[in-house]
Design a protein around this nucleic acid. Structure first.
Length: 865
DNA sequence: GCAAGGTC
């Protein structure tokens, strides 16, 4: 047995560093081995993996999609190959002469599998060193020391459960993906994918769209009025009646009845208070952040799921917050909330709020959610405080959200006082309203009791609900939840209130709303589909595959066709039941009740049966998919030949409109060069072509009908405004305002294409050439009429200069850690762009810019490379 | 080039 060092293996570098710090008492040093950090102290080495460093795949002879029948993948062998060569090589080198190995990967099923992967890599080069497993749920002194003092063994059953998942996901995903792609002849970048997680997620979206399509709106009416206590402010009250079940209802479903009620309400000038109910309600503080709750909260601040996770990841790697991928909603035992709050109270922004929690002389007992897991703590600040210049604005906003969420979980509940007032609109209203009762009864001849009770003895029922915040509690530290009050004054039963501003709103029932990104992630979590680390990526994948577009996501025809095909032939892969079944099987494997072979074999048999039906219908499935693919690209009939006009992508990657009859018909139309086209439902009346919107993040705009845009450009004459600065003197070229067929406008030389001098113009608004002119460039000032107020563009050359200056500012913001304000400061200091930033002396720049240190500049320079 | 799951 070798007497070499002891090797500790963790799931990620970050964990390796912290564990090394804890076990070494901060004395560990760092070495690089194959570009991987190795922490070293005494007789010990610690290395972090990067999640899975080996992956499952089919042998190379299965690589060609056209050569291999998809069905063959079902029983094809599955191999495990290193996917992170550097880490695997470093691990082998360290393992070779290790005297003992300790696996310290995350404490969950996937961590056990990653541990087993490490185990096998170690065993390849070292047959006899003992290999232990330690488990801890948060990287703190206590937990880590305790875990290392009580090492355990690797749980091979649990790891096998994970391996079964890998193989089942691969065979189903690869076989079905290849089948669909081949049947529709979609090879290359635009293949058609399905899988255990994509499938049900896509079906969720498609099903909701089906509900929306099938929705039949129904008309209803609602009546309102304002009530006023003498000398007080008016408050809104709403008409209600009692339906057949005796429950309160506000919507009136019959137009004639609504009309009579409106008349009755109009006839009443006052209302008498009939009932006053007051109660206090406790509003519990929120529970700790797990990944899903965090994504949702960040979503309400305007961040996409993807963006929120990437910001949290940045904050985690910088050491300001804990690990952002967690299901846990219960803080671990050894988190001392008071201590953490004390650390946070040193911060300038939320420090006062943190302190306010300490001032109250009380036990701090954080809230707990329903889910308690062993892998990581809920997301919370670490207590290491960034200064504002360490973070970009987005990072800061998300950091503050995480801090305030933590503070909120340690804060007191809020208390609301609820006040409900019911008043009866009296007088002749009753007489009129009784007519409505009669009317409604006529309409419901089958029901002995009529439609319910539209009018009370004393008149029409009006109700108002007020709420007042008695104790703000956690709202003081967590401003992201509404604490708006609705004031209804104190009134007494029998009191008469003035009734004014009566109105009746005609409304329609609305179809269900599309799921937004965070809602989809919540629904996935509820159904057990995907994991905390993958759900947001699955959505991203659906966008990439052209299954969904826009936000909230809306399914394409292709997505509908894929779901339809799967529903018919492979129901399993679009149902959440596949995951549920797999989860049961994995638990059985982990418990030793079932074997890996048994479970994977049963899954292969099921997939075999799916392919029995599927293979027969290959052509029909392919046809349907191809038709849908085309429908997603179709704008309408070609004005030249009547075939379909399609949105296409040129070899250079830009989009244009071309005829499906090509090469017989060569009709084309340009599209704007910025963004990705989205075809809208709206159709051009003149050309019967659907309108196009260009998706380009914040610069998204509606292009409209591409034929109209081209026609407008053809009709408009160029307006000359001066001499061309490039070729005016030599060749007499002139600058003119031009409208391009793609819809954009520019100031360009009349000698184009011999001279390609050009300046950009805004996309929107009419452009007016004013009498004022620029002395420097001898060009007229331009004015743009868009919206309510015209705005001055000025000299087009000066304008372009300012524009590029701003561009350089925003270019600086592409460097991680530079926000809008920092970019401005840097520009003031003479840094004009990223290239400039890279060449500047860090110390000089730090001296020029407030709040920026030389190290920060070096950090930016490294990131800019 | 396919999946889903880790991590960056």
């Amino acid at each position: 047995m070798s007497r070499g060092p002891e090797l500790i293996i963790t799931e990620k570098d970050n964990a390796a560093r912290r564990i090394a710090d804890i076990l070494s008492g901060e004395s560990a040093t760092t070495e690089r081995q194959n570009d991987v950090n190795v922490y070293k102290w005494g007789g010990k080495r610690c290395i972090g993996l990067s999640g899975h460093v080996v992956g499952v795949d089919f042998p190379a002879e299965y690589n060609d999609w056209r050569d291999v029948e998809p069905v063959e993948l079902i029983d094809a062998p599955v191999t495990k190959e290193p996917t992170q060569e550097g880490i695997v090589a470093a691990l082998r080198k360290l393992a070779r002469n290790a005297s003992r190995v300790v696996i310290a990967t995350d404490y969950d099923r996937e961590g056990e599998l990653i541990g087993k992967e490490a185990y096998e890599l170690v065993r390849e080069v070292n047959e006899d060193a003992p290999i232990d497993r330690v488990r801890f749920s948060s990287i703190t002194d206590n937990e880590v020391n305790e875990a290392f003092a009580n090492p355990d063994e690797l749980d091979f059953d649990l790891a096998a459960a994970g391996e079964a998942r890998q193989v089942i996901d691969l065979t189903w995903g690869a076989a079905l993906t290849r089948f669909l792609s081949l049947s529709a002849r979609q090879l290359g970048d635009d293949f058609i994918s399905v899988g255990r997680v994509q499938g049900p997620t896509l079906k969720l979206i498609v099903d909701r769209e089906r509900e929306i399509q099938a929705f039949d709106p129904e008309a209803y009416w609602e009546l309102y009025g304002n009530l006023t206590k003498s000398g007080g402010d008016p408050f809104e009250a709403r008409y209600f009646y009692l339906n057949d079940d005796g429950n309160e209802a506000e919507r009136v479903w019959d137009g004639d009845v609504a009309e009579v009620l409106t008349e009755a309400l109009a006839a009443a000038g006052e209302a008498v208070v009939d009932d006053v109910r007051r109660r206090t309600r406790t509003d519990e503080p929120p529970t700790p952040f797990n990944t899903t709750a965090f994504i949702r909260a960040a979503g309400s601040l305007g961040y996409s799921a993807q963006r929120a996770m990437s910001l949290a990841e940045d904050l985690y790697t910088a050491g300001y917050v804990t690990y952002p991928r967690t299901d846990n909603t219960v803080y671990p035992e050894d988190l001392d909330p008071r201590e953490l709050i004390e650390e946070l109270s040193a911060a300038s922004t939320f420090g006062k709020d943190a302190k306010s929690l300490l001032d109250a002389d009380r036990e701090i007992e954080p809230t707990e959610g329903d889910e308690e897991t062993t892998d990581h703590p809920p997301i919370h600040p670490t207590g290491e405080l960034p200064s504002a210049s360490d973070l970009s604005e987005d990072e800061w906003e998300v950091y503050e959200l995480i801090v305030r969420r933590f503070l909120a979980t340690c804060a007191e509940p809020a208390t609301w006082e609820r006040l409900r007032v019911v008043a009866l609109a009296n007088g002749e209203a009753t007489a009129i309203a009784e007519r409505a009762d009669g009317l409604a009864a006529l309409r419901n001849p089958d029901e002995a009791s009529g439609p319910g009770d539209l009018v009370a003895d004393g008149g029409l029922r009006l109700k108002a609900n007020g709420k007042r915040l008695l104790e703000a509690g956690y709202h003081d530290v967590y401003p992201y939840r509404s604490s708006d009050e609705r004031i209804v004054p104190d009134v007494a039963v029998g009191e008469t209130l003035a009734l004014t501003d009566r109105r009746t709103d005609a409304k329609e029932t609305q179809p269900p709303r599309r799921y937004g990104q965070s809602r989809l992630i919540e629904e996935m979590e509820k159904r057990g589909v995907g994991t905390k680390a993958t759900r947001h990526r699955t959505l991203e994948k659906l966008y990439d595959r052209n299954y969904i577009e826009s936000d909230p996501p809306r399914p394409t025809r292709l997505a509908e066709a894929v779901v339809e095909a799967a529903e018919e032939f492979a129901q399993h892969v679009v149902s959440e039941e596949m995951t549920a079944q797999l989860e049961r099987d994995m638990q059985a494997i982990a418990a030793g009740e079932k074997g890996y072979d048994e479970v994977t074999e049963a899954s292969r048999e099921l997939l075999d049966r799916v392919f029995d039906d599927l293979t027969e219908s290959r052509e029909a499935v392919g046809d349907h998919l191809q038709k849908s693919l085309k429908a997603d690209k179709t704008l309408g009939p070609c004005p030249e030949c009547g075939e379909d006009l399609l949105v296409r992508k040129s070899r250079q990657g830009s989009y244009f409109v071309g005829c499906d009859g090509y090469p017989d018909c060569e009709h084309t139309l340009p599209l704007p060069s910025t963004g990705k086209p989205l075809i809208l439902d709206e159709t051009c009346e003149d050309h019967d072509l659907r309108h196009v919107k260009m998706l380009a993040g914040r610069k998204t705009f509606v292009h409209g009908c591409p034929q109209c845009k081209a026609d407008e450009a053809d009709e408009q004459e160029d307006e000359v405004i001066g001499a061309c600065p490039e070729c005016g003197e030599e060749h007499g070229g002139e600058l003119a305002i031009k409208r391009l067929r793609s819809g954009s406008r520019l100031v360009g030389c009349t000698r184009y294409p011999d001279c390609d001098y050009s300046l950009p113009l805004p996309r929107r608004g009419e452009i007016e050439v004013t009498d004022e002119s620029c002395e420097e460039h001898d060009l007229p000032h331009l004015r743009v009429h868009s919206g309510d107020e015209p705005w001055e563009l000025g000299c087009p050359i000066c304008n372009y200069r300012e524009f590029t200056a701003r561009q350089e500012g925003s270019e600086l913001q592409t460097v991680e850690g530079i926000g809008e304000k920092t970019a401005e400061k840097l520009q003031d200091a003479g840094v004009d762009g990223v290239d400039d930033l890279k060449s500047v002396d860090p110390d000089d720049l730090a001296a020029d810019v407030d709040g920026v240190g030389a190290d920060t500049v070096r950090d930016w320079q490294a990131k800019a490379d």
